[in-house]
Each structure stands twice: as structure tokens, then as C-alpha cells.
Design a protein around this nucleic acid. Sequence first.
DNA 1: TTGTTGACCTCTT
DNA 2: CAAGAGGCCAACA
Length: 132
Amino acid sequence: MPKAKKIQAPTNALPKILPSGKSDISFFEQVYDVVRQIPKGRVTSYGVIAAFLGAKSSARMVGWAMNASFTVRPKVPAHRVVNRNGMLSGKAHFVPPTLMEELLTKENIKVENNRVVDFEKKFWDPAIDLNF
DNA sequence: TTGTTGACCTCTT
DNA sequence: CAAGAGGCCAACA
């Protein structure tokens, strides 16, 4: 389960402007920006974030971003991100593994069987409250 | 440099 | 309805 692997923040985690002027900031950094703005007491999913950033099929990358999020500052509320079904798939990656559930509980989000209760009500869509 | 591995999602059998 | 496969792309061995 928790392999306790050390993961470094992506080398291109900082805003980066390419000579071609094509790309502005890295995918990872965009993910962090979105996650940081998740309102307290709300949750969202990997896929939605990916889709919001224009990488619909890159939900896995959001997962990787979360994996490295612990090494990134300012801190990212990774516990507010769950999978499509509202399940705490990343729970095992927290230290301790119970931390994710605890943090959510503190924010009035009930968790049962590794799943967020009333997920649809707590769900937060970046496309709604965020204007890019 | 190539191959494997994901905190996922969706479409297809 | 359940299970499998493909796709995405960065990090690692």
C-alpha cells in the first residue's frame, strides 16, 4: 500500500514561459492552483480537474500531481480531491493513512467506507466558481 | 533509452 | 451488470 516513496516536486513546477511563448505554466502547477482554491468543506475529483484544465483524459496526471503535492509549497489540500465515485482512493498515501479522513471530518465532510457521504452535495466544480 | 508504473476515467466486451 | 482494455503523460529503474 503506502510504498512511502520519496517523490520530488516536478522540476517545472514553477511558472515557466517558453521562448515560443506557447506554454505558460506546467500542468502540475495548474492542478495545484485549482486544488488550492477548493472551498473548505467541499470536494472535487481528479477527472474534473483534468477536464477543466483541458486534459480530459489525463486524470492520472492529477493523481501524480497530488502525489508530489506534499513537497510543494504553499501546501495543497489534497484531501479534498477524491475519485469520480467520491471514494478516498488516495487515503493510503497520507501519513498517517487516517489523516485524509480526519481532515475531511474536520471540515464537516462525513466519510463512510472510504467514501464521502453526500458526495454530490459536497462536490465542487472548478468550472463553476472559477473563471479562467 | 526503453519499459514499467500509477491517489483515474471511459468505452467496450 | 461485471470485468477488461486503452489512453493519458510524468517519474523512475
